[in-house]
Simulated scan of single mutants.
Amino acid sequence: MKRQKRDRVERAHQKGYTAGVNGKSPESCPFSSLEAKEHWLGGWREAREEVSKGYFV
């Protein structure tokens, strides 16, 4: 995997994670490409799991 591509999907994951921690809905994903959207949603799901476990208040 190229570095540039990895950076883009890592950034999408991080933005999704941040959105999940802040309580945003999955429909608020700003990405249109399928790959970036999948990574954003993965980060969002990860954050929502951690919020439900009480890691964030």
Rank of each mutant, 00 (worst) to 15 (best):
M1P: 06
M1Y: 10
M1N: 08
M1K: 08
K2G: 14
K2N: 13
K2F: 12
K2Y: 13
R3C: 12
R3A: 13
R3K: 14
Q4E: 15
K5T: 12
K5E: 13
K5C: 11
K5W: 10
K5Y: 12
R6G: 11
R6K: 14
R6Y: 11
R6S: 14
R6F: 14
D7H: 09
V9Q: 09
V9G: 02
V9C: 10
E10L: 08
E10K: 03
E10V: 04
R11G: 11
A12G: 14
A12Y: 07
H13V: 02
H13R: 04
H13Y: 10
Q14K: 13
K15I: 02
K15N: 06
G16F: 00
G16H: 01
G16Q: 02
G16W: 00
G16K: 00
Y17W: 08
Y17E: 01
A19S: 00
A19T: 00
A19C: 03
G20V: 02
G20I: 00
V21G: 09
N22E: 06
N22S: 04
N22M: 03
K24G: 04
P26H: 02
P26Q: 03
E27N: 00
S28D: 05
C29P: 05
P30A: 11
P30Q: 03
F31Q: 01
F31V: 05
F31G: 01
S32V: 05
S33E: 14
S33Q: 08
L34Y: 06
L34W: 07
L34A: 13
E35L: 15
A36H: 07
K37R: 07
E38H: 03
E38G: 02
E38S: 04
E38W: 01
E38A: 07
W40E: 03
W40H: 04
W40S: 00
L41G: 00
L41C: 01
G43A: 05
G43S: 06
W44A: 10
W44R: 07
W44C: 10
W44Y: 13
W44H: 12
W44T: 09
R45E: 05
E46L: 10
A47I: 02
A47S: 05
R48K: 15
R48I: 11
E49N: 14
E50Q: 08
E50K: 06
E50A: 06
V51R: 05
V51H: 04
V51Y: 04
K53N: 06
K53D: 06
K53C: 01
K53I: 01
K53A: 11
G54R: 08
G54K: 07
G54C: 09
G54M: 07
Y55V: 05
Y55I: 03
Y55P: 00
Y55D: 06
Y55N: 09
Y55L: 08
F56R: 13
V57S: 15
V57T: 14
V57Y: 15
